[in-house]
Every structure is written in structure tokens, then in C-alpha cells.
Amino acid sequence: MNLHTPEIDRKPSEEEARAALELLRRYTSKAQDAEIEALDPALGALVPGASAYPELSRDYPEGFDADADYKATLPDLQNGPSALIRGENRAIQHVGISNFRLPIHYHTRDNGDLMLETSVTGTVSLEADKKGINMSRIMRSFYRHAEKTFSFEVIEAALDDYKSDLESFDARIQMRFSFPMKVESLRSGLSGYQYYDIALELVETAGVRRKIMHLDYVYSSTCPCSLELSEHARRERGQLATPHSQRSVARISVELAEGDCLWFEDVIDMCRAAVPTETQVMVKREDEQAFAELNAANPIFVEDAARLFAERLQAEPRVGDFRVLASHQESLHSHDAVSVLTEGETFASESLDPRLFSSLFHVG
């Protein structure tokens, strides 16, 4: 039998209720979630900053159908009025998505076909009075053409689509991939695959379209000064000495001129003709000796490298404007030797990306 005193049965006053509420708020502001849950889950509503949302379902609705009527109710902030713009109401030159990947078919110079994983970046211009873009449309536009074998004509069709879908004036597509090419060793007769980092760009600005290819060429550079000093030590003092050489990277960027196709393999051949000391894939002792002889026959400063590549590019009618970036990652120094040579307005720039040369790094 329970006995209640009149005090317990009495309805608390509003002042007492407010005092109790304040006490509970102080408690929940300092208590752990587990303590609050153990006392009474309803107290969670008193935690500072707690949402007033009702209890929601935690089960994924497998059978839910987002029909047209439902989709029409979904908020779309990016296509909202210009009043929603935050910050300065300015045009943006490039906005889009970077590094969405998919397999793309490429045709080779010897009439073969390769499917290569390709990283795609797609951007468009955004007018000052527009809040934003629907970025998924860039992917959807590109996917409509992704099954076709690559050509700049196919990419131009994709560019046209997403310019239309996003109602933009300027646009850009960049595709990056690693292109395999079988190369023979110098003397042993072995062969293996060399991989070349390539990027293709289609850029439209103010109604003018440019087609651009970037290719990284990895080679060995033997220092001419170090070679002469080593020979001096041998000749004058009978002292064995070796010149320093290092893995080096040139990024060749070319604007493609109208006319015949410039194949990836063509650019690689030009690089090899300019600087023949390309790093090797399959090597036996006779190949290693041959490579030492090849380096001794072609000692090269970073200035020489830029000019030798430029000489080949300048003579090629399928190449318009171009740029050569070279980085000799010195074994003598704790810093690199670098050079930049440009031809034409496409790649001319007074300022360089602070991380530009650090991107010229070949991961074996």
C-alpha cells in the first residue's frame, strides 16, 4: 500500500517547474550522452543546440519511388536566384568537376586499339548573375560519348553538349591517362612497356577552340661539367671519378595545328630524337654498359634539353604553339635544375604555378 503525503500529491507551481527545468538543463549541458540516455532519452531535447526534429525512421526505404511529382519538390539551390549568391557577384572562368574516371578507347599509330583508365576534368564558365551549375550534367554529357573511340571530334561533341546543358559560353575538357608503348633494350634484344603520362585538352574561350597535348618524357641527364671534371681527374691524377647523372623529366605541351593527326607516338619519337637517353625498361649487363656509353655521348644541361626539344617541335608542321618544361633532379645538389621555353601566346605566362616544377616527378 502506497501512502502519499499532501506535499507529493500537490501540483508544483510554475516557479518550481521553471527551477526544475533549469536544473535539468544544467545537468544535460554537462552530462555525457550515455548518462542522458540512461536517465531518460527525452532529456536529449534539453541539450544545448539539440534539434527539435521529431523522431525519424532509420530504415532505408527500399521501395520508395521518386516520381516526377516528388522530384519537382526537391530544392535546387544552385539554380536559385542571384540573390542567393554569396561573396562578390563576379563571373567565374572555370567551375566544374575534376578526376572523374572511366575507361576510354584510344587508337594507336599502328592501327591498334587500347582501353585506358582516364581521369577527366570538365569545367565551364559561370556568368556573374548565376548562382552555380549542376555539376552532374558535365558527367552525364561526357558519358553520352564515352563508348566511342577517342578523337578530338568526339570530345568536341561532348563539349558542345555540356555547354548547351549548362548554358555556358566557355568550356574545357582535360583527359589524363598513362599510355603504354613497347620499347626494346639497347643491346640484349629484350623489350618491355614504357608508360607515358599524357593529358589532352580541348579549350574553348570566346568562341575559339584549341586542342592541346601534354606529354611527360623521362630521361637521364649526365652533367657535361661533371663529365669533364671526372676525365680531368683521371687524366691528370690517375684518379677514378664518375660524372653525376640523374633521372630527369620534360613536360612537352603542344597546341595541335590543323591538318594531319599528330599521334602520341609521334611526339614520343620527337622526344627520343632530341634527347636519346630515355630511361630503360628491360636491362641486362650489356644494356647497362650501353646506357653508360649513350649518356657519355649525350651529356646535357637543362638549358640544352629545353632547346633540343624545341628544335624538334619547331620543325614539325603539325605543332603550333608549344612549351617545354624540363627538370633535372640533381644527384649532386639537394635542389633541381629547371628550365621553361615557350613558343607563341598559348603557353606564355609571366607567373608560374608555385607547385609547377614539383609536379615534374616520375614515380617508378
Results as ranks from 00 to 15, higher is better:
residue 203 V to Q: 12
residue 254 V to I: 07
residue 219 Y to D: 01
residue 219 Y to G: 00
residue 249 V to P: 00
residue 260 D to K: 11
residue 217 Y to V: 03
residue 242 T to R: 13
residue 246 Q to W: 04
residue 238 G to V: 08
residue 234 R to E: 04
residue 257 A to Y: 06
residue 242 T to L: 15
residue 267 V to I: 15
residue 267 V to S: 00
residue 195 Y to A: 07
residue 205 T to L: 08
residue 225 C to P: 03
residue 214 H to S: 06
residue 221 S to A: 15
residue 191 S to D: 12
residue 190 L to H: 13
residue 258 E to M: 11
residue 195 Y to C: 08
residue 245 S to I: 04
residue 213 M to H: 05
residue 203 V to G: 05
residue 264 F to P: 01
residue 192 G to L: 11
residue 224 P to V: 11
residue 205 T to F: 11
residue 197 D to M: 09
residue 191 S to P: 08
residue 250 A to K: 00
residue 249 V to S: 01
residue 190 L to G: 09
residue 223 C to D: 08
residue 251 R to I: 00
residue 227 L to V: 07
residue 230 S to R: 09
residue 239 Q to S: 12
residue 190 L to Y: 09
residue 247 R to C: 04
residue 220 S to M: 10
residue 260 D to A: 15
residue 225 C to T: 15
residue 255 E to W: 01
residue 192 G to N: 10
residue 227 L to W: 02
residue 243 P to V: 15
residue 226 S to V: 09
residue 233 A to H: 09
residue 230 S to E: 05
residue 232 H to I: 15
residue 234 R to C: 05
residue 215 L to S: 06
residue 199 A to Q: 11
residue 237 R to S: 10
residue 189 G to H: 10
residue 241 A to H: 12
residue 237 R to C: 11
residue 259 G to T: 09
residue 225 C to M: 14
residue 215 L to G: 00
residue 229 L to K: 12
residue 265 E to T: 07
residue 204 E to A: 11
residue 268 I to T: 05
residue 219 Y to I: 01
residue 239 Q to Y: 13
residue 237 R to I: 08
residue 204 E to F: 07
residue 233 A to K: 08
residue 208 V to Y: 11
residue 253 S to T: 04
residue 243 P to Y: 12
residue 201 E to R: 10
residue 215 L to R: 06
residue 263 W to H: 05
residue 202 L to D: 04
residue 250 A to F: 01
residue 199 A to G: 14
residue 223 C to Y: 02
residue 257 A to T: 13
residue 229 L to G: 02
residue 252 I to H: 00
residue 234 R to F: 06
residue 244 H to K: 05
residue 260 D to C: 01
residue 227 L to A: 05
residue 253 S to M: 09
residue 227 L to I: 07
residue 257 A to E: 10
residue 262 L to S: 06
residue 237 R to T: 05
residue 210 R to P: 07
residue 250 A to N: 04
residue 200 L to A: 02
residue 251 R to P: 01
residue 207 G to A: 14
residue 190 L to K: 13
residue 233 A to S: 11
residue 203 V to I: 14
residue 260 D to S: 13
residue 232 H to S: 14
residue 245 S to R: 02
residue 198 I to Y: 07
residue 189 G to R: 14
residue 189 G to T: 09
residue 194 Q to M: 10
residue 236 E to Y: 09
residue 245 S to L: 06
residue 213 M to K: 13
residue 230 S to L: 06
residue 215 L to N: 02
residue 231 E to P: 00
residue 203 V to E: 06
residue 227 L to R: 12
residue 210 R to L: 12
residue 260 D to I: 02
residue 253 S to E: 04
residue 245 S to D: 08
residue 246 Q to N: 15
residue 190 L to M: 14
residue 251 R to A: 00
residue 230 S to Q: 09
residue 188 S to H: 09
residue 231 E to C: 10
residue 207 G to R: 11
residue 197 D to S: 10
residue 221 S to T: 07
residue 199 A to W: 03
residue 218 V to S: 01
residue 217 Y to E: 01
residue 212 I to S: 06
residue 198 I to K: 03
residue 260 D to W: 01
residue 222 T to L: 09
residue 268 I to G: 00
residue 202 L to I: 10
residue 191 S to A: 13
residue 195 Y to R: 15
residue 210 R to H: 13
